[in-house]
Design a protein around this nucleic acid. Structure first.
Lengths: 138, 138
DNA sequence: TCCTACGATGGACTTTGTCTAAGTCAAGCA
DNA sequence: TGCTTGACTTAGACAAAGTCCATCGTAGGA
């Protein structure tokens, strides 16, 4: 069930209870949790896990490319375990809900050379903003 | 010279020395300053201006749509006085430099209805990431 | 000129994240 | 199975960015 754990183990990660719990939390719910939310859920399973460990572990998973960091608002970063299919995000301006979306088209191709200012471009993020059905009806 | 000040006055803004200074700082340099950088430059002209006032004033200008808030990284928000021509941003992953860019194509049109999840979409931000010529040669 | 409501102040507070020194433990090895 | 070792974890201090609030000051109308 836990593909994430499998992949991490294959990369020679030292497996500890803390890391297992963090990976399971992320893998279990396919929503975009903040570091604090991950910590809260991890504490429920392993009460003595510390905030620093959650931050460290999330950071390592991001470095390994297994998890994507998303900062859609000015608040906390969110962590997206869906690092395998490229996608962008749709954010509700009211409640902050995030959905993964897969637009057609390639934004990279839309940036003419004359607008690149000599940069070597390595990636692009697209964030759609709007109001979700829940907030719209409220 | 200060279009920004003009527009704010027309909207019935009560004009104070502090607000004038903040508007002038933003209007004067067409770069993307952080709130702290705005504060530092404002202090140079009006030594007793407080951080809270700078935050308040920037927030009001954002609300009025005269200035755009940009959070390209996990650090401080940046303020972009170029709110009149729609544009996106190109960010250097090393030094954090930001350039305004104008891609062709319309990302909104690239999001099929089936990927909108009932959201009412109000806008889209595109952030290109890469390495600027300076950092590449270093 | 005087009044008054709107704006400014500064300092405490909150949130999010990082760092560090000391303790703990997973995993290889005998 | 029992050492050893260095990677991992911990708690708490610290830092950066931003918000809040009670109080004071002042822009602009009467």
């Amino acid at each position: 069930m836990s593909d994430l754990l499998e992949r991490l183990r294959e990369r020679g990660w030292r497996m500890t209870a803390q890391r297992r719990v963090v990976a399971e939390v992320l893998d279990g719910e396919h929503v975009h949790l903040t570091a604090d939310e991950v910590h809260a859920r991890a504490v429920a399973r392993l009460p003595e896990i510390s905030r620093a460990t959650v931050y460290n572990t999330l950071g390592e998973m991001v470095t390994l490319g297994e998890v994507i960091e998303v900062s859609t608002d000015r608040r906390a970063k969110r962590y997206d375990p869906n690092a395998h299919r490229p996608h962008h995000h749709l954010v509700c301006a009211q409640c902050g809900a995030i959905r993964d979306v897969h637009p057609s088209g390639d934004p990279l191709a839309d940036l003419p050379d004359g607008e690149r200012f000599g940069f070597t471009i390595s990636g692009v993020e697209v964030t759609y903003r709007g109001t979700c059905p829940n907030c719209a009806s409220a």
